[in-house]
Amino acid sequence: MKFTKVSIYLIIFILLNSCSLNKAAKYLKEGKTEQENFTNTLPFDLKKGWIIVPVEIENKTYRFILDTGTPTLVSKELAQSLNMKAIDSVDAYDVYNKGQKNKYTRIENIKIGKTDFVGTAALINDFNATAIWASLNVDGFIGSNLMQHAIWDIDFKQKQITITDNESNLDLPDDLIENKMFIGVAGLPSIACKINGERIWNFPVDLGYNGGIVMPFSDFEKQIENGQISDFKKSDTQGIIGVYGKQNSSRESYTGIIDEIEFGNFTIKNEKVYSEQYLSKIFGLDFFKNYRVILNWNSKKIKLIENKETTNS
């Protein structure tokens, strides 16, 4: 049976050569918060599976998607309307190795809630190239290179985000779920976990992917062969949509139920996962929305508080 998965996977690999990578890494480390000893809370909307928050730039409010799986992005239209100057360019690639040359700009001040983030590098992107972005009517993406300069408490039950620079300002229970975060280029976070006892590294923590858990295709097939996954279904799919468009070729995919996923100090039972040929691995929003999620780049920890009124995907 053939089906199309319309979820979006937004990790951009900024590659080409060592010079390009070094320049990109330098720009994407820039930025800070203007305030110190701050805590503020703001509401967010969930639209078509993405977190949309209001931001303020030059005293005007815009709609941005909150996405840990990409650097900060602004639309071409927003960059033009605010007369944002390009400071450099780099070749950027999406999950399917489809690339464009992107110009960099710098957002001098972007206010999220009551917190001012200053000196944030952002890629200028053509959102009209993919129909889904145009339909969401958004002006940009808050990416990990901005988020790494604060602590983010995302409460899906209350639909609100608390931003702070001190985790002790958050009301956290003692019995929370905790896992180590590994921080990559542009502040992109990833985790390791065990799936049916097999450790798998570098799962991106990607709030810009509106699916759940994506398991590496080779690992999924290996566990089938070893009899570790018995409840699964094989299909053909048109693939996940990348930031630069949709793949036209079909590919093999699986959906299955994993007996045990060890996430830091917690074991998840009977969790549904997806696996697609040539696609790597992800922990996406459909998994995290069952929890209150605390992301702390300083301590390199992700903490989860289970929402008792929901069940896993």
Results as ranks from 00 to 15, higher is better:
D165F: 00
T115Y: 01
A86G: 12
M84H: 07
T120Q: 12
N137S: 06
K101Y: 07
D175L: 12
L78G: 09
T115Q: 05
S168M: 11
Q158D: 14
R63P: 05
L78M: 12
D171G: 14
D165E: 11
Y96G: 09
I161R: 10
I154Q: 03
I177E: 08
Q158V: 09
E167R: 15
N169D: 15
K114T: 13
F127T: 05
V90M: 04
L66H: 04
D175M: 09
K103I: 13
R63M: 06
F141T: 08
M84S: 09
I65A: 08
A122D: 01
F156C: 03
G140S: 04
P173M: 04
A79C: 08
Y104Q: 05
V90R: 11
D139W: 05
F156M: 07
A129Q: 15
G113R: 10
D126I: 13
A131S: 12
F141I: 12
N102P: 06
Q80V: 14
T162V: 08
T61M: 06
N166T: 07
A121N: 07
T61F: 05
Q160A: 10
T115E: 04
I87C: 08
K111E: 13
E178T: 15
Q100Y: 10
T68M: 00
I161C: 04
T72A: 03
A131D: 09
K157A: 12
D165C: 06
G113Y: 01
I65H: 01
S144M: 03
I161G: 01
L176W: 09
N102E: 11
D91T: 14
I132N: 06
L136P: 04
I142F: 03
Y62S: 05
